[in-house]
Amino acid sequence: MIALDPAEKKRPEFIKVRVKRQDGPGKDPYWQLFQIKYEPELNIISVLQRIAALATTSDGKKVAPVAWDCGCLEEVCGSCTMQINGRVRQSCSALVDRLLEENDDELVLEPMSKFPVIRDLIVDRKRLFRALQRVKAWVPVDSYYDMGSGERQLRSTQEQNYPLSQCMSCGCCLDACPQYGKIELEQREGESDEAFQARELEAFDEGFVGPHAISQAMLFNNHPTGKALAGERLDALTGPGGIQVCGNAQNCVSVCPKEIPLTTSIARAGRATTVHMIKKWFDR
């Protein structure tokens, strides 16, 4: 692609940005339209920064700045996920010029659809991290003392594992997965924070673990020491909300900003659980 030459390509003077807002959990969402000056090389983060500094809608009403989440601004931290023009993605790598090519009318920003909204574009992704606990996504080393190096690993193993290890827990794959449902609980009257959290975890643990966690399970099952927990991870994957929930829609792999081979992991997990299940039946 060649640079967008302002002289050649007509660019609007202003960009309309429609934002789906929500003041808090359980509140009704509503839409607001903002207008900012067009500049070349904007991304959605800078658009939101402009809106935050402006804090005025297109019809001049003063409003609270739109709340959103971001971190690295270079697509490695996973913070800034949202739906842009109806598609879930990282907003730091979403370039306005490209988006305007798709739809030159306006930019539409919405929070992720499968996670409870905290405010505006910020969602609560605790469940995503909880899934990593469910599949024990870690290497169970004895200690953090100096015990010499780890086992030698072939380059091919590294090359298989490295891509999986790049998962930044952004949740794009989950948001696009038609088998992944939203779990949003409300704290009951008189319920303590602890009780509520416990209830929430229970609900999470019955929901779909999600492709990212399946992939992490495969990553650690392919590690010389990580293997030690292979059986437990497969138990988790065959438990409630395990791999069986996947219906092979394969959106996950299509939207993953890190291009992680999720469906390959899912198929590998399919085979591993098949073998695991048969073994368990006969070894009982």
Binding site: W138, S149, R152, R155, F220
Partner: peptide, 18 residues
Amino acid sequence: IDLMDRLGVPFNRTGEGF
């Protein structure tokens, strides 16, 4: 480095696995 290796960091490897 040894510890991070044991913790599963996918360091790039030589042909022989170092």
